[in-house]
Write a protein that binds this DNA or RNA. Structure first.
Lengths: 237, 237
DNA sequence: CGAAACCTTGACAATGTTCAATCACTGTGG
DNA sequence: CCACAGTGATTGAACATTGTCAAGGTTTCG
C-alpha cells in the first residue's frame, strides 16, 4: 500500500516517514462481504484494525452464553490499541462485518514498536483514544438517563452531523434492528415498540430501515432534554 | 514537593529527570475537608488533578438542572488529560470532595509541554488512559446487562480485590447512598429497596454504611452471571 | 422452495420511578 | 442548650417502563 494513503488518515498524519513506510509495508488492506468473521479472540490480541468503510461489530460471549456487544466500529474507527500495553485474554473479542467492509490491519507488535519509537505517532494515537473515551462517557450518561425512545432518537440524531439545520431528513439504519437494540441496551421487542412510539411523538416516518425526520428540532428537544451535553454531542472528528 | 514522591507514582515512573523536576516544582499538594468544591468548570480545563487519598466527585448540570455524575475518583485516579488536546467548554466539569482528600494538581499547560517532549511520560499516560477506557467499557456493559441488585453487588465486590478468597468480609460504603445510587444509574429509593433485597438474597448484613458479606462466592455467583468478564473484573493498578 | 433470521404484536410479569410521608442525623443560630 | 432547617435514608402505593413468552408475518439466502 502507498504511504500517501496513510498520511491522509488523521491517526497517522504526524507519523515519521520511516513509520509511514513501515506501516504501508505491513498493512494489509481487505474487503469482506457482510456477515464474515474478521477476527477471532486470539487474532484480536495480535491485530490492530482500522475501518476504511462499512460497519463492524466487536463482541464476546457472556458466561451464560449471550452475545455481548463490545463496540460498533465504522469509518475511521479502529480497535486493538488496548493490546499495546497489556494482553489479557479476557479483553479479547471477535469482530464480524455487519455490512460490506473495507479495512486494513497491522500486527500489534509492529504498532507497539512504532509507538515506542515515534513520539508524534503516539501523540496522535493518544488523541484518538481520548476522543473514544469521551464517546464512552457520553454513552454511559445516556444509558443511565435516557429512556428507550430517547436512546433511539439520540442514535438517529448522531447519524448525521448537519441534522439540526435541515428539514425532512432521510436516514437509513446502518444495521439491523436486533443489533441496534442490543447496542442501545434494550430488547428487540422494546426497540420495536419504542421506535413506533417515538415516531408518533416526534413526527418520524418509519419504513423498515428507512426513517424520515420531518422536524429535527422537535426530535432534538425531546431526546436531549435531560442530557448534560449540548446538542450535536460527541460527533467524532 | 520531592521528585521521589512522583517517581513512585506509576503514571510518572518513567518520566525523565527533567520532567520529574518540573513536575515536582509545579505540583501543588492540597488537603481538603469533605464537601469542598475543588474545581469549577473553568478551572477543570486548566488543571490536571491527581488523587493521593480520598474520594472526589466530578459532575455537571444537565440542561434541565439535574446533577449528572461524570466520574468518581479515588486513590491514584486522575482527571484533566482530556484537555491536553482539545479544550471544549462542554467537556468541563466541577470537582467536589466527598471525603477528606489529599490531592495534587498540575497546570494543564505544563503537562501538555511535558507530554510533547517526554516520550516515556506520554506512554505511561497512554497506558493509564487505556486502563480507564477499559473500566468505562465494563461500566457500559454493566449498565445494559445488570439489574439494580446486581449493580449494587458488583460495586461492593470491586471495593476489595481479595474478596473472593475471604469469608465474612466487612466493608464500609465510601460515600453516601444517594450519590452511590446516582453513580449506579438508579434512584435513591430503588437503591434502598434493591440493597435490602440483595442482602436477603445473598446473605449480607447491612448496618447503615457498614456491610458484611458472609459468603462472597454466593454474591459473585449472583452478580456476575450475565457478564462477559471473569470475576475480579477490571481491578485497576 | 424451505429454513433461518428478522421484525412486530399481544398479554402478562418484573423492574424501576414517582410522590408523599416519616424518621434519623447534623450542623446552625438564637 | 434547644429549636429548627436541611440532608440522607427508608417505606408504601400508584404508576410507567421494560422484559418475557408466545405467535405470526416478512425478508433473505442458499
Amino acid at each position: 500500500m502507498q504511504t500517501g494513503f496513510f498520511q491522509k488518515i488523521k491517526l497517522f498524519s504526524q507519523a515519521s516517514p520511516t513509520s509511514l513506510q513501515q506501516i504501508s509495508h505491513a498493512a494489509k488492506k481487505r474487503l469482506y462481504k457482510k456477515g464474515t468473521i474478521i477476527l477471532d479472540r486470539y487474532q484480536s490480541q495480535q491485530t490492530f484494525l482500522y475501518v476504511i468503510n462499512g460497519w463492524i461489530k466487536l463482541f464476546r460471549e457472556s458466561s451464560d452464553g449471550e452475545e455481548v456487544i463490545v463496540d460498533m466500529l465504522t469509518q475511521n474507527h479502529h480497535c486493538g490499541a488496548t493490546f499495546l500495553f497489556e494482553s489479557k485474554e479476557e479483553d479479547t473479542y471477535m469482530a464480524k462485518s455487519i455490512s460490506e467492509i473495507e479495512i486494513f490491519t497491522l500486527p500489534t507488535t509492529l504498532l507497539k514498536r512504532l509507538v515506542a519509537s515515534d513520539h508524534n505517532l503516539s501523540l496522535c494515537l493518544m488523541h484518538s483514544i481520548l476522543q473514544k473515551q469521551k464517546s464512552l462517557s457520553v454513552h454511559i450518561e445516556h444509558l443511565s438517563i435516557q429512556n428507550a425512545m430517547q436512546r433511539i432518537g439520540c442514535f438517529l440524531l448522531r447519524l448525521r452531523s448537519d441534522i439540526q439545520f435541515q428539514k425532512n431528513i432521510k436516514l437509513r439504519l446502518p444495521y439491523d434492528k436486533v443489533l441496534l437494540a442490543s447496542r442501545l441496551g434494550m430488547r428487540p421487542e422494546t426497540f420495536s415498540r419504542a421506535l413506533s412510539k417515538l415516531s408518533r411523538k416526534c413526527d418520524l416516518h418509519v419504513d423498515n430501515e428507512l426513517i424520515a425526520i420531518s422536524c429535527p428540532l422537535k426530535l432534538i428537544q425531546y431526546v436531549c432534554q435531560h442530557c448534560s451535553q449540548i446538542f450535536p454531542c460527541n460527533l467524532e472528528g
